[in-house]
Design a protein around this nucleic acid. Structure first.
Lengths: 340, 340
DNA sequence: CTGAAAGCGCTAACAT
DNA sequence: ATGTTAGCGCTTTCAG
């Protein structure tokens, strides 16, 4: 019985019921309820009254089938627990709220197989568009996206080969730019702290770009530290303690996210380190919630809301485009790095 | 053209196409693709191959209309930006992942009118169930929920009059219990710091319960401080500074959420206050991300994941129940309060 | 094990 | 300004 609707025995109200109640045809009711075509004011009022009094709720399934229109936009992200994704959704929502379109969210839990399933399920509802986080997908998922017949936008990342349109930043370049900033400020004994998960492709790319940037400046990464599990103050604190005990002469710590950096910052302050002189810190992802820490962590704003807005605009324009929109992350100096 | 599907000119594949390709009837294809009824192994293989090679994606809209079944569960929450709601979604997801059901998320942005619209839109897709955060709704929304004909569960809160089933905690009692803990630990000059928004009904209830608990112990709230906007370290820090400058002899600060409490904690530590002796702090909502702060904030776990799981179980059982499930929040002592 | 017919509730297109 | 007709793509039901 699972998933049975409506509850057996309680038939749903149809246009016909409203039409009878109002003494007009189904078609007229349909027009009134959708504000289509000319209907006399008198009839309008009668229909609305009939619908209201019966508690009629239209059946969008039937409407969608008949009209071949669905006002849903599928959005596939890895998770809602990582704050970056709700922020992308905020941007999407800002734009779609101005339209008839509604986002429908699905999560892949960082699994490519699962992502494929979610995309398949979403497309089976024939949405008006699809927004998918990241560029890494199974072949089948890419094929579905390519054949969707509606606007598809991949978001967050531009380091790779998008199926269709894409909006994001280059995480590789973001890492590289951070390396340049750090080296320019005189740091030389640099550690990287990040996730051991291979599924965080964007963090991987930042790390690669970071190492590239360092090596271009003739600096080698002095040490790395990885964690399994979720980012957070405890994680950042633990990693920081570990890497500094192993390599005490580090003068800079670059974290995969500000959440971990915040934990590291608190640890370093407790240890009495002189930040940013003795040791500097930087993260990624500028989280508003962290304003109010004892120091402002140097970071790079990944422009998540802008990315969401931009992707939603492509969908709203019903543009079957394959344009790539590269946003440039903003370096926020904070006060955990020395001046250049 | 907005919302038009599929893209004009690219007709969607139908069962008929697959049937022709496989040389069987539409009905047989339908059976194979849904694993229904007996189909010979040979036919199955042929059909799967045909579907795969064509890249066929079933049309759930047509399927839902014909079968009167929809495997979607509507979930209406105020926002995704406040971490408590994604955590409820996590619990819902854990349970629904074991079934055919899929959550579809809608946000009300803390607006009752908007919530009504979202509920209406969701019900118009004839979902298999509906989960709505909170007990405060417009009359129209309550009427729709009552007449939905599918399981409806209100979550998070039990202080009020649910339409049907409800799972949550009593925020009033949570506030009251916290007051008792604080008074039992000898604090007497107590301040409350929270949101000025009337839309956060649950925080309002906690505050009311808190004041009730204090007055039962013969203690009056010494001061209050409210903010507009979002919770975060900066907000908590700012409120804390303000209330302590105005009422320097406070010996306890109770915050509406751990996020604000964390900002307050950092401020108090910087000021050199002796926590928990000179001043104690407590919040609400135990966020894992905060593990790793210099001290563990006393708080109450609002059992958000359990709430989500429990609500999803009612939906998954297709139970048109009106049972109320009260979960009891757990007091977590941390080390920002004295021992009793 | 497979197929044919009927229709889900609504809307596009064409009347009037 | 309103009504009529014919499906949308699928599943249910009933026949074989």
């Amino acid at each position: 019985m699972r998933g049975r609707n409506p509850f057996d025995g309680k038939p749903q109200l149809t246009l016909r019921d409203v039409a009878e109640q109002a003494g007009v045809s189904e078609m007229t009711v349909s027009r009134v309820l959708r504000n289509r075509g000319d209907v006399s004011e008198r009839t309008r009022a009668r229909v609305f009254e009939a619908a209201r009094s019966l508690g009629y709720v239209p059946n969008k399934i039937a409407g969608a089938l008949a009209s071949n229109r669905v006002n849903l936009v599928g959005v596939v992200i890895p998770s809602l627990s990582n704050m970056v994704f709700p922020e992308v959704l905020t941007g999407i929502g800002q734009v779609l709220d101005e339209t008839e379109l509604q986002p429908v969210i699905g999560t892949s839990q960082y699994g490519l197989e699962r992502e494929e399933t979610v995309i398949y399920e979403m497309l089976s509802w024939r949405p008006a568009g699809l927004i998918v986080a990241g560029l890494e997908h199974t072949d089948a998922a890419r094929a579905m996206m390519a054949a969707a017949g509606v606007p598809v936008v991949e978001v967050m990342d531009l380091d790779g080969d998008p199926v269709a349109a894409a909006v994001g930043i280059s995480h590789f370049e973001a890492g590289r730019a951070m390396a340049q900033e750090i080296v320019a400020r005189g740091y030389r004994r640099i550690g990287y702290l990040g996730s051991s998960s291979m599924s965080d492709h964007r963090a991987q790319k930042r790390q690669a770009g970071f190492e590239k940037g360092l090596s271009e400046a003739g600096v080698a990464l002095a040490d790395t530290c990885f964690y399994a599990g979720v980012s957070g103050f405890g994680t950042g604190r633990g990693m920081t303690k570990e890497i500094l005990e192993r390599t005490p002469d580090l003068d800079f710590l670059y974290y995969n996210t500000d959440m971990n950096a915040a934990g590291g910052l608190l640890y370093c302050l407790e240890q009495g380190f002189d930040i940013p002189n003795q040791i500097g810190l930087a993260g990624f992802n500028s989280f508003e919630v962290l304003d109010g820490l004892p120091m402002r962590i140097a970071t790079m704003d990944s422009r998540r809301t802008d990315i969401g807005r931009s992707a939603a605009e492509i969908i709203a324009a019903n543009a079957l485009s394959d344009e790539k929109i590269e946003l440039i992350p903003e370096f926020l100096e904070g006060n955990t790095v020395r001046s250049p």
